[in-house]
Design a protein around this nucleic acid. Structure first.
Length: 310
DNA sequence: TGCGTCACGGTTGAG
DNA sequence: AGCTCAACCGTGACG
């Protein structure tokens, strides 16, 4: 997998394994340093998504009826990757990679904590599970961002310790007739991601176009794998327009990710032989859709971060 | 031979 | 500023 087995860590890679080809002038030094070549001779950056034009080409070639193994060979992308991208596309309608990085948003916001404190002050004998019910009933939380009983208990213990010390009731102090088992939100809604609420808000702000595929998984819709919702979906023309702007107008990348991917993109553009797909790609840069409008990328509530992670 | 799956080593970004 | 953690990535190998 690692083509530079004899490369010392951190050593600058100036030849990418293409015969007679040295470093591409003007390439991102990061790509030069971290770029690798797979068994098929294709260029990739470990840990980073393939550039979107490669992803696009995979989808397009598949739609032309070309077998995944042939796509793999033609684009010099591992068949596992082709399989994964095609599977994701079939499942979500999106060619885009998932959102990388980030953390689960906290449910114990200051507002929630304050309300718990208020409840506890009103009724010091209130149990954590009762507080949890109140949070839901009073509209402080919904079922997607409702803290677990354990979280409430921790808040009571850590942040309202004095009150607890005086009155002391947590979910450990269960009433005799109460079940000691209170499933977490995740357990109650195993198929619903915690970020769904935020995604719904994002969707309300910027409604996503209808995906050709039913939503199954990913940010912003139940079961979507990504952790962070996209504020808007990406159509082919959106995406191509993005790159078109970069290529055609030389617009500066908005973020370091853009810069990275732009350089990656430019590099791969210069490395890969033109294909029919790239022709469609180039044509689409002129304003039309590469797929006659038939291919929509960006499933419902797609990834938030990807505008900067092309 | 083709393809789905998974371990691996890597990156990323919120907390 | 730097660390942790849990998500993601593509590759390569296996069945």
């Amino acid at each position: 997998m690692t083509p530079f087995k004899d490369k010392a860590p951190g050593e600058l890679v100036t030849n990418f394994g293409f015969s007679g080809e040295s470093a591409i002038s003007g390439m991102d030094p990061n790509i030069q340093q971290y770029g690798e070549v797979n068994q098929l001779g294709g260029m990739f950056v470990n840990g980073r998504p393939l550039p979107n034009h490669i992803r696009l080409r995979i989808i397009e070639l598949a739609q032309l009826g070309i077998r995944p193994c042939d796509i793999s060979r033609q684009l010099r992308v591992s068949h596992g990757c082709v399989s994964k991208i095609l599977a994701r596309y079939n499942e979500t309608g999106s060619i885009l990679p998932g959102a990388i990085g980030g953390s689960k948003p906290r449910v114990t916001t200051p507002k929630v904590t304050a309300y718990i404190k208020e409840l506890k002050q009103k009724d010091p004998g209130m149990f954590a599970w009762e507080i949890r019910d109140h949070l839901l009933q009073d509209g402080i939380c919904d079922k997607f961002n409702l803290p677990s009983v354990s979280s409430i208990s921790r808040i009571l213990r850590n942040k309202i310790g004095t009150l607890q010390h005086l009155q002391g009731a947590t979910h450990y102090d269960l009433k005799p007739h109460q079940s000691p088992v209170y499933p977490s939100v995740a357990a109650m809604y195993p198929h619903y991601p915690y970020q769904a609420h935020a995604a719904a808000a994002a969707a309300a702000a910027a409604p996503a176009p209808v995906s050709p595929m039913p939503p199954k998984s990913g940010a912003g819709s139940p079961g979507m794998p990504s952790r962070t919702p996209w504020p808007s979906a990406h159509s082919v023309s959106d995406l191509l327009g993005h790159w078109g702007q970069m290529r055609g107008h030389g617009g500066p990348p908005a973020t370091s990710h853009d810069a990275q991917n732009y350089n990656y993109f430019m590099y791969l553009q210069s490395c890969n032989a033109p294909t029919a797909a790239s022709g469609a790609f180039s044509g689409a840069l002129g304003g039309g859709s590469a797929f006659g409008g038939g291919l929509m990328m960006g499933g419902p509530g797609q990834h938030t971060q990807q505008t900067s992670s092309l």
